[in-house]
Nucleic acid binder design. Sequence first.
DNA 1: GTCCATTATAGCATATTCGTATAGTCGCCC
DNA 2: GGGCGACTATACGAATATGCTATAATGGAC
Lengths: 291, 291
Amino acid sequence: MRLRQLECFRALMLHGTMTRAAELLGMSQPGISTMIAGLEHETGLNLFVRRGGRLQPTPEAKLFYVEAARALEAAENASRVAAEIKSGRRGHLAIAAYPSISINLLPRLLSQFARNKPELQIKIITRNSATVRELISTQQFDLAVAELPLDYPTAHMEVFSYDCMCMLPGAHPLAKLKQITPDDLDGVPFITLFRGDPIYQQLASAFSEQGARWNVVAETEFFSTACQLVAEGRGVGIVDPVVSKPFTEGLALRPFRPRIQYQVAILSPTHEALSQVAQDFAKLLRRALRA
Amino acid sequence: MRLRQLECFRALMLHGTMTRAAELLGMSQPGISTMIAGLEHETGLNLFVRRGGRLQPTPEAKLFYVEAARALEAAENASRVAAEIKSGRRGHLAIAAYPSISINLLPRLLSQFARNKPELQIKIITRNSATVRELISTQQFDLAVAELPLDYPTAHMEVFSYDCMCMLPGAHPLAKLKQITPDDLDGVPFITLFRGDPIYQQLASAFSEQGARWNVVAETEFFSTACQLVAEGRGVGIVDPVVSKPFTEGLALRPFRPRIQYQVAILSPTHEALSQVAQDFAKLLRRALRA
DNA sequence: GTCCATTATAGCATATTCGTATAGTCGCCC
DNA sequence: GGGCGACTATACGAATATGCTATAATGGAC
């Protein structure tokens, strides 16, 4: 039993004559005739009686029609769903990300991505980078974004490295410098990430190597919190130039030397194939993180 | 999108490798390969990633699979239903019949007919012959059985004529006669159908023509009632030899002269095609009425 | 590296599909 | 009853699809 036969059968049931059914389906009348003959032969049912040169559906045809129409609709639905999947209108995209990126950059990218995909189900879960790494290995997420380093990176990783910038209130005297070193910040009130963070370690080394006094007045968990404190005039700080960009409006950013490296990675599951939607979004995300 | 493609896709999703799917479907591995390639091309979806010489379903494949399986099942269901219709296991058979025949003969034939057709829905409606004739023209019934004559027979008719038999209690003295005439029954207590019935008219003429006294002691609506009264010894009567046969057990039946004609017809709708089931049953019924 | 299991491609025979041309059938109207 | 119009069925051929065998290509295991 072929779908085309069912299609012809339905058209014939709905429109009464083969000639009209053929028009509707954009095919010739003999085409319909042979299709119907084939269907009758294969099912063994007499679907129409030839009566006065016309076709009259038998009771069998009426019974069969119900099922035939149902099957056709299911097939057509499958086709439609395929098109939806292809265009990304249907599907889901589950992303795990660490806080700083999930506050602003990620939702901004996602809403842009999903604008013409009304049926796309989106899930963002925010966890610290270590948890994010674990989540991706449970295969429950399509993509994850985590800060490096990770203890034991199991998933497929794509790394993005940034040199951190020193951020200062716009009117700060040091803002006139082209770049900023620990020497310049000797004793200047400083806002940093927590002691456990790699950034903290790198800063501590940088200051101690230059013999400058690192005057830490605040430790925060996220760049975004630090940015806000700097904006309030509590001191200067250090920030990555891409992910935290939305939080540094109105602040002066200057290259910091020596380089303080900040690394972020897009993680994807190893055992699971990546959906097209996820691949497409990864492309967008990659572009944003490279910028 | 063709059903065969979906079939291959399902087998592949369920069994993991093309080789096994091919075995299951009784076809070659390259056959599956080209089917899947065709499906991927037509839907525009990457359904499998080739990974280490194996196929791994993509998330798109998993999403699409749900719909594909549904469509396949619907199509298979349609096939099954077609087979059921063909074998008469599915369908309905609505018969309208006049009382005498619907008491015994019809249900007996029907239950024999439906023995191996568990899904066949049977409807018997019992009305007098005039109503039966009307019902058949409303197209709500497949077949009807009515007594003739009918006022204005619109439907297609197949007529069966019988010469009525005289019925007597088994021990009745007249039972020794080979055939019975009104003369033989002069003054004998007689049980007949109602005054309006054609049988009544024919009997009245027969008796008056021979100048015999027709001693009517009971009028009944149905032959079956008359038979019971005869069996109780209330008198003799007249009965058709086929339809009423089940009610005449233990009674003596003798040809009655002059012939009293009793006519029954199988009616079928004119505008509606007859279902195969109905045709098959009509054949059985015809054989029974001819006997 | 070799073997084993898998998938992909090529080439070919067959089947299906679907068009055009044409014949057959029936009802209708004069 | 003949011709017309509307319809269905059949014949035939070209394009396409199907599905086989043979064979190449790939990658994992040892």
